[in-house]
Amino acid sequence: MREGDRKRGGGAPRRKGRVLVVLRSMWHRADGAYALVVIALWLLVSLVSAVWTPHPLIESDGRNAWARPSASYPLGTDGAGHDLLSWLMRGSLTELEVVALVVLCTAACGLLGVWASIGYKSGAGRGSRTWMVCVDTLIAVPTVIVAMVVSVPLGASIAVIVVACAFAYSLSIVRVTRPVAQLAATSQYVEAARSYGVGEARIFFTHIVPAVAPTMAVQLSLSAGTAILAESGLTYLGIGIPAGVPSWGRSLSDCAKLITVYPLTVIWPGVIITAVVVALNLLGDALRDCADPVVNADLRRTMEGGSR
């Protein structure tokens, strides 16, 4: 028996092998392939733009304002002479930040909310019922209002976007995953684990969380897409990404303000945003199907390891 055979779960291949199988399954689907390509491109551009863009982001001369697309300025320039392509490239890094923060915060708050919703005595306690009532009331609070209120102390900042999106989506996660979480929490395997002395925290992370993981993955990818859309809207309203920081929303809103002058500059930011949001939405669905050993036969075969 090789050392590698004794990996977690008792399957022959290691975790890296499983990830590759999931990726390959996603690649074979049309929506998965699109999502993977677009997101890979996005990551690539972000990384590149961190160190290099075709033109520096802040040009000191404004003489080149609103130039048409040309060899040196493939997408033209904006009202201050900045190269639109460079701003869009660098903006992709900002979007990456936004999405990463939103997904992390939403996941953390969502898990906290799920834990509160199953509560002590697995969802039958008064505490968890009260919490669900709170969730149902809070979920009606419009995200725009949350963003506005939060922007008062924080000003225009990425935190406004993160807080507003995390608030909305973590509540949505709690509501949507409640049936599954309840089922897991009241299941006999959890009762069995408790009887063997498994601690509550361990039970939560090893039994309950895997049960809600597929639904959460879809919700998190939706929240990622919404984060980008929210960023564009909130930046336009002045309470999102601060001025001077490149982002797709900023490109979009800058172009919007002067649409009468040169309408076509508005096309590219919008196309990019739409393409990436579509990719994120599709990613969630594809991930949910391909990462589930019950649904994905290839994965199941790989995990069971065959004979040794």
Binding site: G233, S253, G270, I273, T274, V277
Partner: peptide, 24 residues
């Protein structure tokens, strides 16, 4: 449906203005 749902409202509005907006 997937694509239309991913359009930022701002951009959608701008496109419509560009097509049907008076003066522009």
């Amino acid at each position: 449906a997937i694509v239309a749902g991913a359009i930022p409202a701002l951009w959608g509005g701008l496109l419509l203005v560009m097509m049907f907006g008076r003066g522009v």
